[in-house]
C-alpha cells in the first residue's frame, strides 16, 4: 500500500516537472491571468455601484472572488485538457494498457502534480496582485484555509473526472473538437467562473447546482471568501466528494467499455 503511494507521488512529481519545464509559457500565462483579473474585477465591481449585496456577495467578497478564480482557472484545468483523447487517437493508449498501473490512476496522479505546479506558479501571482493592489481579503482562520485546500483538492478530482469523460469520447469518434468547445463554455459558465452563481437568477442557479461544475470552482471559492461557513463547509465538501466519486466511477466504467472496443476493433 505504501509502495503504491510512493509510486503515485513519483508520478505526480513527473507531472509537476513536465509543466515546470516551460517557464516562459507559465509566466505568459500568469500575466494573462492577471490582465483578465483586472478586467473582470472592473466589470463586476460596477455592479456594486448599484447595490450593496448580491446574494451573499458584497464588493469585498467579489474582489476576492475575481482574483481567486483567475488563480484557480488553470489549477482545475477549466480550459480543457486533451491528453487522454490524443493518446487514444494516436494509438499510444495501447502502451498505457500494457503497464501494470491502470492508466486512469497514472493520469490522476499526473494531474495532481500538474495542479500543484499551477497552484504555486499561476495561483499565487493573481492572488498576490489582488491582495497587494486591490485589497483582496484573505481568510483569517487557519481552519478555513485547511477547508479551502481540501475543497481545492476535491475540485481537481471533480474536474479530472469530467475531463476524463469528454476525453473518453475519443474511443468512439475521431472529431471531438466541436463538442469539447461547447463543453468548455458550459463548464466555465456553470462552474461560477464567469459570474458567481450567487448572481444567477434562482432558476438558473438551480440548474447549475444540479451539475458537477460548481464543485470545480464555486465551492472552494465560497469557502475562501467566507460565504460558506461553519457546518455548511462540511456539506459542501461532502457534495464535492460525491461528484468526484460519481464521475471517476463512471469514467472507469466508460474506459473499460472503450478499451474493450479498442481491443476488439483494433483501434
Amino acid at each position: 500500500m505504501l509502495a503504491s503511494l510512493r509510486t503515485d507521488l513519483e508520478i505526480a512529481r513527473r507531472g509537476y516537472l513536465r509543466y515546470a519545464a516551460y517557464p516562459a509559457a507559465t509566466a505568459a500565462g500568469a500575466f494573462t491571468n492577471i490582465i483578465f483579473g483586472l478586467m473582470r474585477g472592473s466589470v463586476l465591481l460596477a455592479l456594486f455601484a448599484e447595490r450593496e449585496r448580491i446574494g451573499a456577495y458584497d464588493a469585498a467578497a467579489t474582489i476576492a472572488y475575481v482574483w481567486l478564480t483567475q488563480g484557480l482557472l488553470n489549477v482545475v484545468a477549466l480550459w480543457g485538457w486533451q491528453e487522454l483523447a490524443l493518446r487514444v487517437r494516436t494509438g499510444d493508449i495501447a502502451t498505457d494498457l500494457i503497464r501494470p498501473i491502470h492508466p486512469m490512476r497514472t493520469a490522476l496522479a499526473t494531474d495532481y502534480g500538474r495542479a500543484a505546479y499551477q497552484l504555486i506558479f499561476r495561483g499565487i501571482p493573481p492572488v498576490a496582485v489582488g491582495v497587494l493592489a486591490f485589497h483582496a481579503v484573505l481568510p483569517a482562520d487557519p481552519l478555513v484555509w485547511l477547508a479551502f485546500l481540501a475543497s481545492l483538492a476535491l475540485a481537481v478530482a471533480v474536474s479530472f473526472g469530467f475531463r476524463l469523460l469528454y476525453n473518453l469520447a475519443a474511443f468512439w469518434t475521431t472529431d471531438t473538437r466541436g463538442t469539447m468547445i461547447l463543453a468548455l463554455v458550459v463548464m466555465s459558465v456553470f462552474s461560477g467562473f464567469v459570474i458567481p452563481i450567487q448572481f444567477f437568477p434562482p432558476w438558473l442557479a438551480a440548474i447549475a447546482n444540479a451539475t458537477p461544475f460548481p464543485a470545480m470552482v464555486q465551492t472552494p471559492v465560497d469557502i475562501f471568501v467566507g460565504v460558506t461557513r461553519g457546518p455548511a463547509i462540511l456539506v459542501a465538501l461532502a457534495g464535492q466528494l460525491g461528484w468526484a466519486a460519481g464521475m471517476l466511477l463512471t469514467s472507469y466504467w466508460v474506459f473499460a467499455l472503450g478499451t474493450r472496443r479498442l481491443v476488439v476493433q483494433g483501434g
Binding site: L47, R51, I181
Partner: peptide
C-alpha cells in the same frame, strides 16, 4: 460545429443577462 459556435456566442451573452438580472444599469 456550426451549431456549437452559434451556441457559444449565446452563452457569452448569458453572463451579461445574469448581470442585468441583478441591476438595472451598469
Amino acid at each position: 460545429e456550426i451549431s456549437g459556435t452559434v451556441l457559444i456566442s449565446f452563452i457569452d451573452f448569458v453572463a451579461i443577462l445574469v448581470i442585468f438580472a441583478n441591476v438595472q444599469q451598469l
